[in-house]
Amino acid sequence: MSLYERLYDESEKAKVRFVGFVSEQGRYDFGIVYTHMFFGKPLVVCMQTGRSSLLSLEDAENLEYLQKVFNLRSMEEAEEISIFFKNNLPTITIDAETEH
């Protein structure tokens, strides 16, 4: 008898973008993984802390959520990150297999 029930086991070629930037509040380094999984939400990884989240444009507008998930020091920092994500997250699913 299996100790677990497999929910999914998928492989795909994913597009990954690494972005580093500096603002008035600090330095940020993110990896953004575009995938067909998770209803088209990209996986965003903070390269400094290892914290990650699936983020949609709607999620990027929620400053409290951004502050909590990325362990940001202030709401001003969350606002800067929100602006970055709103300008850099896709509005539609990116076709990770055809874009290089």
Rank of each mutant, 00 (worst) to 15 (best):
Gly40Phe: 08
Glu5Gly: 05
Asn88Trp: 12
Gly26Trp: 01
Glu5Cys: 03
Tyr34His: 15
Tyr4Ser: 07
Glu64Tyr: 11
Gly50Val: 14
Phe21Ile: 06
Thr49Gly: 08
Pro90Asn: 04
Phe84Leu: 04
Glu61Ala: 15
Gln67Ile: 11
Met47Leu: 12
Val33Ala: 04
Glu58His: 08
Glu64Lys: 07
Thr91Asp: 05
Ile81Ser: 03
Ile83Gln: 08
Met1Arg: 14
Ile32Tyr: 02
Phe38Gly: 02
Phe84Cys: 06
Glu61Gly: 15
Asn62Asp: 15
Leu89Lys: 00
Glu64Arg: 14
Ser82Asp: 03
Asp95Lys: 10
Ala60Asn: 06
Glu58Gly: 02
Asn88Val: 10
Ser52Met: 10
Thr49Pro: 06
Ile81Met: 12
Glu64Trp: 03
Glu5His: 05
Glu77Leu: 07
Phe30Ile: 10
Glu10Asn: 06
Lys13Phe: 06
Tyr28Trp: 15
Glu64Val: 13
Gln67Asn: 14
Glu12Arg: 11
Lys86Glu: 04
Val44Thr: 11
Phe85His: 02
Glu12Tyr: 15
Tyr4Trp: 05
Tyr28Met: 02
Tyr65Leu: 12
Thr93Cys: 13
Phe21Met: 04
Tyr34Ser: 05
Val44Tyr: 11
Val44Asp: 07
Met75Thr: 13
Gly31Ser: 14
Glu5Lys: 12
Val33Leu: 13
Lys13Ala: 05
His36Glu: 09
Leu72Glu: 03
Asn62Gly: 02
Ser11Leu: 06
Pro42Gln: 03
Ala78Thr: 06
Lys13Pro: 02
Phe38Asn: 10
Thr91Leu: 13
Ala60Gln: 04
Leu54Thr: 02
Ile81Asp: 09
Tyr65Ser: 11
Arg51Gln: 08
Lys41Met: 14
Asp9Gln: 11
Ala78Cys: 05
Phe70Ile: 04
Leu72Cys: 09
Ser52Ala: 11
Arg51Pro: 03
Thr93Val: 03
Ile81Leu: 15
Glu99Lys: 07
Leu55Ala: 03
Lys13Met: 06
Asn87Val: 00
Phe30Leu: 10
Phe21Gly: 04
Ser2Tyr: 12
Glu99Leu: 12
Val45Ser: 02
Lys13Glu: 13
Ser52Ile: 01
Glu58Trp: 04
Leu72Ser: 07
Leu55Ile: 10
Lys15His: 13
Pro90Tyr: 01
Glu5Asn: 05
Thr35His: 07
Glu10Pro: 00
Ala96Lys: 08
Ser52Pro: 01
His100Cys: 09
Glu58Asp: 11
Val45Arg: 04
Arg73Tyr: 10
Ser56Asn: 09
Val69Asn: 04
Ala14Val: 09
Ser82Pro: 10
Leu66Gly: 00
Phe85Gly: 00
Met75Arg: 11
Val16Ile: 15
Phe70Gln: 09
Leu89Val: 11
Leu89Arg: 01
Val69His: 05
